[in-house]
Simulated scan of single mutants.
Amino acid sequence: MKLLPIFLSFFCGILSLNAQNNIEVEITDFESDKGQAMIGLYNTENSFLKKEFKGKQLKIQDKKVMFTFADIPEGNYAIMVFHDEDKNNELTTNFLGIPKENYGASNNAPSKFGPPKWKDAKFEVKNGKTLKQKIMLN
């Protein structure tokens, strides 16, 4: 009977080490409900804007989108989203490569003379928490 409290304490400790996190994302400032929102979650600087860790196409309602990335392991992440008005599943740009569709990044990272930088967009999730990110489109 003396081992039961020790076992329970040990078991609960192991569960907390493997706790998964959630990232709640609210995206605002869509110009219309036309098209879809494309959202990508990135887990490394090298993959940022190249290969998503997780991604989703979302319906826009009342010029905003709410979405939760669930069961995310602890670590550093960044989010990129754009308004895919023409539903071609890619960010449409002009002949100079300047985006024609609105976009935004976690931490509302600035995009001066190019896309947002990982260092500005990254955030950390840990301890089995729910982290909230509010992204305003440019």
Rank of each mutant, 00 (worst) to 15 (best):
K2H: 15
K2F: 15
K2A: 15
L3C: 06
L3T: 08
P5Q: 07
P5V: 05
P5L: 07
I6R: 08
I6H: 08
F7R: 09
F7M: 15
S9L: 07
F11H: 12
F11T: 14
I14H: 08
I14W: 06
I14T: 11
S16K: 10
Q20L: 15
N21Q: 12
N22R: 02
I23L: 11
V25E: 01
V25G: 00
E26S: 14
T28S: 13
T28R: 10
T28L: 09
D29W: 00
D29F: 00
D29Q: 05
F30Q: 02
E31C: 01
E31N: 10
D33G: 13
K34G: 01
G35V: 01
G35N: 03
A37M: 04
M38E: 13
M38V: 14
I39P: 00
I39E: 01
G40K: 06
G40Y: 10
T44D: 02
T44F: 06
N46S: 15
S47E: 11
F48H: 06
F48Y: 14
L49T: 05
L49M: 12
K51W: 05
K51V: 11
E52G: 05
F53T: 09
F53R: 12
G55R: 14
K56Y: 09
L58H: 04
L58W: 05
I60G: 07
I60E: 04
Q61D: 12
Q61K: 15
D62Y: 12
V65E: 02
V65A: 06
V65N: 03
V65L: 06
F69N: 11
F69D: 04
D71R: 14
D71G: 13
I72H: 05
I72N: 05
E74S: 13
G75A: 03
A78S: 10
I79W: 04
I79A: 09
M80D: 02
F82T: 02
F82Y: 13
E85P: 15
K87A: 02
K87L: 04
K87M: 03
N88L: 10
N88G: 09
N88Y: 12
N88A: 10
E90C: 01
T92M: 05
F95K: 08
L96H: 09
L96G: 05
G97C: 02
I98V: 14
I98N: 09
I98S: 04
P99S: 03
E101V: 03
Y103D: 01
Y103P: 01
Y103M: 05
A105E: 04
N107T: 11
N108K: 02
N108H: 03
A109L: 10
A109N: 08
P110E: 11
K112Y: 07
K112Q: 13
G114F: 09
G114W: 08
P115N: 06
K117I: 08
W118M: 01
W118P: 01
K119W: 05
D120M: 01
D120A: 03
A121T: 11
A121P: 06
A121H: 12
K122E: 01
K122M: 03
F123N: 10
F123L: 12
K126F: 02
K126P: 00
N127F: 06
K129S: 13
T130G: 09
L131T: 11
L131E: 07
L131H: 12
Q133A: 08
I135E: 00
I135V: 13
N138Q: 09
